[in-house]
Design a protein around this nucleic acid. Structure first.
Lengths: 327, 327
DNA sequence: GATAAACATGTAACGGGTTACACAATGTTC
DNA sequence: GAACATTGTGTAACCCGTTACATGTTTATC
């Protein structure tokens, strides 16, 4: 059916070995022969079967990517960073959503391996990582980190601290932290860092638990102002719940930022567009994805890495949900 | 390195053919033999090499997915719908962003084929589809449609009409339509349908061009109210620009929905959470993705399809950016 | 108990590339 | 021009499954 290397060989009047050498630029090939072969390749529009290649070489041009949930706006940016970089390098990505579930993660890893992927990029939790440490193929952690594996992530502590410092500086006196799930370690770190700074400042702080998705964000926001009506500053575990809080606060007649300031986390694209613009902690998601892809490729190519862990800086993005400083 | 079928055969004391028959449940195998083989499989934790399978059978368990830009919040929902369905069916997805560029689309299609994918799901434009019609593997169009190929999409005309009717019903007199790029046909259809309804109603209508991404949405929103300050109703090409308009309107002191009503398109998750809640045309994105996956699998399994084209209904989601009817 | 049908299992070819190795032709060196 | 290195090309084995086919063993049938 499809054109094979044998068809090309016949067309060019040479052996398959010669064709292979020409298209891979390996070994010797006479200039004239090369030309004839290339012509045959073009004429037949020959594209080598990657599966056959992969079988023999025991490595493909495929890379596995596991993210918790592509539907959560933070992850597409990561994914795009990964994909753009890999695409440029000639790799393709097999993608799976894990919902933070160990079982799904492992299932993907298994099938990735069965498909001869040469590397894996994954956002998985610390507790789930044991079986991965002894994986036979390179893996880099994205948006998460553990000692044993290379990783690319953003500085959660700095982010948590930054958020706390900024509300404080801008005069909030009773601050509610909306804390993400404990099993998502990086999110929990944000909380801890914020909490510490706030406690140290001696300000009143409330804690509310929430998850990270759209689901239930609205309810959490409602609960927040019912439970802690005196709240004049909110540190949200991510921008989704930040936006939900912005909404609820305005709905019940609170002025933003005069009555209550809100700081999100992530800096997803929409945060700039909502009203009022959501001040937030920027995580360089696209760059993180691209960086993870870059170091994965380096590992695949056996290049020595200076660092195993890449902790990228976060920054405070000041928009309209926080007061101007000094006011 | 990895365990092969030969290792299992040796461990079980049978031939590779027998092992293959057992694990694939094809042909005969004695109950006792079956048990011994299965034990060996478990003991060695054998996972068949999908690449070798794929090479021989000329079909893999891989499916290609091409979307314009995963970073645009409408697409992750589609992707998730696709992925969830395929994952359940034992398929994995190779994913690529095309940015609506024919060249990238074709490049992905080529490499997908090189990897023996058994089917492709793609959001590609009409003009780009010619070479796809004569593809040797099943392809289903998602969020787009052309006569020649199976497709799953939402009723754009209905959506466009609905949006127009709803602003009209709610009393807007000068309506600005923010129109998406002409080359994205479905988005253009929304515009046309809205435009027709509005014209027929004899209301004043302005047209503003925009793209569909976060990029420049803010600037378009500013431009809108500068160019057409009398606007008291906006039909946005999607929710992103809808949200941007909400923001700008409030920023310059217009009341929503009293002074200006805004209707988006897509119903991305965040639209429920912004303030005020964005009224919009709901596209069943997740279901579209899942449906596309479903019919692709049917085509792969050579099942007869009753329909080639699946046009899913859209609906108006009333939130806070439009007036209560009768007011 | 002979004969056919059903069952059980192994051998080897195959899919489409890559590459070790053998062999031939050419080029280089003294 | 002999000896050796370099270049050019083909043959066949290999990657790891699947399956056609051959062969042998049971079971069923009359």
């Amino acid at each position: 059916m499809a054109i094979t290397i044998r068809d090309v060989a016949k067309e060019a009047g040479v052996s398959v070995a010669t064709v292979s050498r020409v298209i891979n630029d390996s070994g010797y090939a006479h200039e004239d022969t090369r030309k004839v072969v290339l012509e045959a390749v073009n004429k037949l529009n020959y594209k080598p079967n990657e599966v056959a290649r992969s079988l023999f070489k025991r490595k493909s041009k495929l890379i596995g990517l596991i993210l918790p949930d592509i539907t959560n706006p933070f992850f597409p940016a990561l994914a795009r960073g990964v994909e753009d970089y890999l695409q440029k390098e000639g790799y393709r990505v097999i993608f799976g959503n894990s919902d933070e579930q160990l079982e799904k993660e492992m299932d993907y890893v298994d099938t990735f391996k069965q498909n001869n992927v040469v590397g894996i990029i994954a956002s998985i939790n610390e507790t789930d990582s044991e079986m991965l440490s002894e994986l036979s193929i390179p893996l880099v952690l994205l948006d998460r980190t553990i000692e044993a594996l290379p990783s690319v992530y953003a500085d959660q502590e700095q982010g948590g601290r930054l958020a706390a410092e900024k509300v404080l500086e801008r005069g909030s006196k009773e601050i509610t932290i909306v804390r993400g799930p404990k099993n998502v370690k990086n999110v929990y770190q944000r909380f801890e860092a914020s909490y510490e700074v706030l406690k140290e400042a001696g300000v009143k702080v409330n804690i509310l638990d929430s998850n990270l998705s759209f689901n239930g964000a609205k309810e959490r926001a409602i609960e927040l102002f019912q439970k802690y009506p005196q709240t004049d500053g909110v540190l949200a575990c991510n921008d989704i719940v930040g936006v939900a809080i912005l909404n609820e606060a305005q709905r019940i007649g609170k002025r933003i930022p005069e009555d209550v300031q809100v700081i999100g986390f992530d800096d997803i694209s929409i945060s700039e567009l909502v009203y009022p613009g959501l001040s937030t902690i920027h995580q360089p998601a696209y760059e993180m994805g691209a960086k993870a892809a870059e170091i994965l490729i380096k590992k695949i190519n056996q290049e020595k890495l200076l660092n195993i862990h890449y902790k990228l800086a976060v920054s405070f993005v000041e928009r309209k949900s926080t007061r101007k400083i000094g006011k």
